[in-house]
Design a protein around this nucleic acid. Structure first.
Lengths: 183, 183
DNA sequence: TAGTCGTCAGTCAATATTGACTATTCAGGA
DNA sequence: TCCTGAATAGTCAATATTGACTGACGACTA
């Protein structure tokens, strides 16, 4: 329910129409979520059926009609519930990059090392980008700091992994210690 | 494509039928992925259409007929490509728990602190569980170590966040520094 | 006064994912 | 023999997600 929580959290700060919502998510919340536009509309309709929000047709000047979304009392209660659930629980995270690592034996150590060097460069670019993000107000800043802390830990860990493969590559000359297979 | 990579990686080590595959994923690879059974079958069919694997009906003794999956030459090539892509790129991770944090202003600091204490306990249990997992062979061990490193970093970070809210709570008595709102 | 570029607002068909279910065989007991 | 529970193998309807598309308006321009 993180996506519902996110939408409720935004809408309770201010009633909004779809485009505003989408802009805000893309611009300020891309770190937390990757909610796409059609998914957002899908969830908004679902939440309307649940009675958590209402939709009102509006028109400003001559612009096309807009649908304004705002949370109901029910919605606010749901928001509080979802927020408490989210804060109190730990949500296990999985790393897409681990799948490749799990099968790294399939390639010679020196090639893995080379590929991980590319990964490391991408990671470093991400760290730099995260550090360059301007200061945000309120709790969002915590999320940014989380991201930076995490990326730095990733970088340190990746270095130990690369050491591992560098050592394996060094040993690859010796006939007794193999980390490879020929599928 | 991590899921495809995962399935190819397993099947190229040994041809398997569905149940074996599923058992292995649940037992040994739950750290990397949360691939569910119907998704696995869906992907296996798709990969068959792509020509990456073949399906063969087999029967052992009197047991129900089984469908054995094995990778083709095409499949092996695809595996190598996906593996290289996975290893060389960095895959941005998002944390479900951050959404709640982003809206933590909606609750009084002392309640956030209380909720985060629960989160911390769950996280600590996870660290303990990860440390207790028996030693695995090969590269899977790397993934386990990644998990432990990550969880420990999370724990440290969560402590700083809790300090933040503890300080905010301490200041809540003073009339000039508010971090709350009354929705 | 029609063309077309960028912004705004939303939809739709296709794809991906999953909870809940079906069905077969075996082992053991009643 | 019939019944029950566990292991085996897989399907299906419902839900969730997304890439690609539609269309309306305002400003500029030629």
């Amino acid at each position: 329910m993180e996506r519902e929580l996110l939408l409720l959290g935004l809408l309770r700060q201010a009633r909004m129409y779809g485009y505003q919502l989408h802009e805000f998510i893309e611009r300020d919340l891309a770190i937390c979520t990757d909610l796409k536009k059609p998914t957002a509309y899908f969830l908004l309709d679902k939440m309307t059926k649940q009675g958590w929000i209402t939709q009102t047709e509006e028109r400003e000047g001559n612009r096309p009609q807009r649908r304004v979304y705002q949370v109901t009392v029910e919605g606010e209660q749901t928001f509080q519930r979802l927020l408490r659930e989210n804060l109190s629980g730990y949500h296990m995270t999985r790393f897409a990059g681990d799948v490749g690592l799990a099968f790294a034996d399939a390639l010679p150590a020196h090639e893995v090392l080379e590929l991980l060097r590319e990964r490391r460069a991408a990671l470093e670019a991400d760290v730099a980008a995260a550090r360059a993000v301007p200061w945000h107000a309120g709790s969002i800043q915590l999320v940014l700091e989380h991201r930076i802390v995490h990326l730095e830990a990733e970088l340190r860990w990746l270095d130990t992994v690369m050491h591992h493969f560098a050592a394996a590559d060094h040993n690859a000359g010796q006939p007794n210690t193999e980390g490879e297979d020929q599928g």
